[in-house]
Write a protein that binds this DNA or RNA. Structure first.
Lengths: 339, 339
DNA sequence: TCAAAAGTGTTATCCTTACACCCATGT
DNA sequence: ACATGGGTGTAAGGATAACACTTTTGA
């Protein structure tokens, strides 16, 4: 084995390896106790659908990938992003059925951004949609979602035994079953709220998701496709949304990114509702308060919020010093904190 | 604000946004209680240096990004990768001083792979180098590394007060100091072993790292550049190495990736030494054993290892069932488990 | 007055941490 | 014999989870 790195020669035309980078942002916020994401109308489609703010990386215009993304979001939605985090780079296959684009290989870079929705958003044409309208199986705040037991679980098991799904790169049936068990908490395994992307991809592979662009290259839409209230967004963008939600669910536990979604001052209950919205599960009130207060994550202010629906509440703010004190400051919600 | 997505028109030549993807792998293993990574000789350099296995993504040859990377690693080192994980996508600036390549914008995709070194590697031209030869400040197993107190900390503080570093995008001095404190555990803050990439980038920004390619576009190499035993690898590749180590340190705590680095059967002490090598710190023996055994991560076998240097040890193997039982199975080493 | 949320207090339990101590082997 | 690693037991302290209960507002 001659371990010599092969680099393209200087004379070699580099267009052979040329690809285009597509920058895509899942801009998240919390609105009325629901995780929302920013959308733009998508016109290049069969139907009139929606999309995440996105655009190509233009090396000559954009200093960095991050900057490129920020400028697309600004241009398309008017939102100037604060917290921004790269998620994953998907090497999408060229879309086979988009005429005139067959030769273009697009690499999709997904980002998660965190902001706060503003009151004038709708008036100024900024549209937020609920993440759980697109991923309804992820919201367990009112108990196990019906769509899971009634539609998803039976179809997944069906697909596995009847063999109508496409085996991925020679994956054994047993391995597939184990992945399903872990991802969806079947057969007594625990539901791990962080595995949002895994669940999304398994559903897509199983053909349970309808693609507004008309058919997936991987698996044909089955008759059993889930009926979602809102499905007019491409696979690629829904996958990025799923990545973002999963990342956020994981990250709030060990980094104080939660406060990017909060106003400067907030009540502990508002904070709890935000965490619950993100995790898609209910938390135990008293213990949550203790956790947050004793964890040094917040500082009380002298301000009071009235009209809470009950007794007026003390307002708190994020306590930055915690960054220096603790290695992994976050809302350390473990499984047992469930209400 | 007209929120309409701008896509390139079908007729528009897509070469304007064309970039090349460079796939780069930090292939990690543990050898003699040291975290090692696989290298290839690099010949396109001023000096004869080394590099991570890497190559361009060729859309026509490679089905997916992952496959592209796997095939480059196989071609360049003969290693067939198992566990593979994407790290981060860096939008490198075009190198200003590589003649003939000025117009090529390269996006670097970093990967982490986990394997086990084999006895015949050296004989077959596969070279493993110690990660801590490149990141010596990360190894605290024999106490705080001298390079930190003697070279790094004074230089970082110097650079901050004398103002000889380049401020990043209008970053305030105070913010910079806070980042340094958090990353390097200055002024009583705890050393967070996971912040490997942050530390690497701060050192590079401060001009403390020498680039074998001759000068960084960001900061000129200062006279105070650290003297490392091995520095003949590019900034880009060292950054990927740092990302990989940081990711691995974080990941072993909540996913059983550790066992990708172990033989099928192992003693608990070998497992501990591996964790210590990765984290760069010592752990408490008895508690580590309890943690691992009671955590259901391993199963005892009937086999015994002799010649351990002491009493013969029971051999264990990874217990796969843990994946179904616990949402985040890993070696949950907290700060307090230090020896 | 009552619902809803704020807020306090108190347990039992488990996990973590830090000890002390004995066992079996190779040199 | 003794160094080295293997392996067990246990007790203190802290964090967690599950209680019960009082307070203060708006409708």
């Amino acid at each position: 084995m001659n371990a010599v790195q092969r680099l393209p020669l200087p004379g070699e035309p580099y267009r052979t390896n040329a690809v285009e980078i597509s920058l895509n942002a899942a801009v998240l916020s919390i609105d009325h106790d629901a995780p929302c994401f920013l959308t733009v109308p998508r016109q290049n489609d069969v139907k009139n659908g929606i999309a995440l703010p996105s655009g190509p990386f233009v090396p000559s215009d954009h200093m960095t990938l991050d900057n490129g993304l920020r400028s697309w979001v600004l241009e398309q939605t008017g939102v100037e992003l604060g917290y921004l985090e790269q998620l994953y780079t998907f090497g999408d296959q060229p879309l086979p059925n988009l005429p005139g684009h067959n030769d273009k290989h697009i690499i999709s870079l997904g980002y998660m951004a965190l902001t706060r929705a503003k009151p004038d958003d709708a008036a100024e044409g900024r549209h937020w949609l609920g993440a759980y309208d697109f991923l309804p199986w992820e919201d367990w705040r009112d108990g196990k979602p019906e769509i899971l037991a009634q539609q998803i679980e039976p179809h997944l098991r069906d697909g596995l035994t009847s063999g109508s799904y496409q085996t991925n790169a020679g994956e054994h049936r047993g391995e597939r079953l184990e992945r399903l068990r872990i991802a969806f908490g079947l057969d007594g395994a625990a539901w791990d709220e962080e595995r949002v992307l895994e669940r999304y991809e398994l559903l897509q592979d199983a053909g349970l998701l309808a693609d507004p662009n008309g058919g997936s290259p991987v698996a044909p839409a089955r008759k059993g496709a889930l009926s979602l209230t809102a499905a007019a967004m491409s696979f690629a963008h829904r996958r990025i949304l799923a990545s973002a939600l999963g990342r956020l669910r994981a990250k709030i536990k060990y980094r104080p990114v939660l406060f990017e979604l909060m106003a400067g001052e907030f009540t502990l209950f508002e904070l709890q509702r935000t965490v619950e919205a993100i995790l898609g599960s209910r938390l135990h009130k008293q213990n949550f308060r203790r956790l947050v207060e004793s964890g040094g994550l917040v500082d009380p202010t002298t301000d009071i919020r009235t009209h809470t629906g009950g007794r007026p509440a003390k307002l708190f703010r994020f306590r930055r010093e915690v960054l220096l004190e603790r290695p992994a400051p976050g809302v350390r919600v473990r499984a047992g904190l469930a209400a």
